[in-house]
Design a protein around this nucleic acid. Sequence first.
DNA 1: AGCTTGCATCGACAAACGTCGATCCAACAG
DNA 2: CTGTTGGATCGACGTTTGTCGATGCAAGCT
Lengths: 132, 132
Amino acid sequence: MSKQEAEVPGEVDACCPGLLTAPLHADQAVELAKVFKALGDPIRLRLLSMIASRAGGEVCVCDLTPAFDLSQPTISHHLKLLRQAGLIDCERRGTWVYYWLLPEMTDRLAGVLARPAGQPLPERPAEAGVAS
Amino acid sequence: MSKQEAEVPGEVDACCPGLLTAPLHADQAVELAKVFKALGDPIRLRLLSMIASRAGGEVCVCDLTPAFDLSQPTISHHLKLLRQAGLIDCERRGTWVYYWLLPEMTDRLAGVLARPAGQPLPERPAEAGVAS
DNA sequence: AGCTTGCATCGACAAACGTCGATCCAACAG
DNA sequence: CTGTTGGATCGACGTTTGTCGATGCAAGCT
């Protein structure tokens, strides 16, 4: 497992301290977008959440599939996308396949979205529909 | 502006301390996925980055459009999606329209992806292709 | 050897997405 | 009022995505 064509971004370019500090380069944007796109589906978010929050650190697919109203191939497909995004990895153990989180990737995303310390927050409070 | 059908998620459900601590509920997953999907495109990531990293805190569309090899309607479309996701907002000032970041949303995402303090990290080091 | 079970892969197909040119609207300049 | 410019909205069109049933493969059971 984890050895298919899987073009795992992996090294989203160690650089770039964040989206919010400097304009992203086109290549970095492409790599980052792959990962965010993987998170852009409710099923995949729930799968990732179920995997990440598991006590032992890993989950058997046989525990994931019945949690959704979707066919087994569909769940398998979503797991594949999460794996190709570098968010999870898996291993076959006997009859079953186990998935676990790769925290490096979620850490990286959190860092990319984080606002660098005391960013001034330009003067504009939080007018989300104030209709001044 | 900022007053169209724009079903801004906004309150992705103040709860949920993170994706990684407990299985996400279906509704929360749907809301979160909308925002991540908005980030799942290289153009939108670069737009957001250009807007967020701007000194004055806001950018005129006329500064954004020429930075890409895309038509003006396409850029406008991407900006609309970012706005509907609650990531940015805009205002018309005279002839020009200015966009700025809504840091609440990026903060929320960063929080959702963050690993709660000293999460054990189950024993599995970081085998990204160890092929044991 | 056969059968069964757990998952992945393979088309297929409808829905969603990214892009464009054309058009429309708001604001300013003559 | 007329013309111009910045930007949003409107179809249209090709590509990608999410889903399925059918099939393939690996591992255990009898």
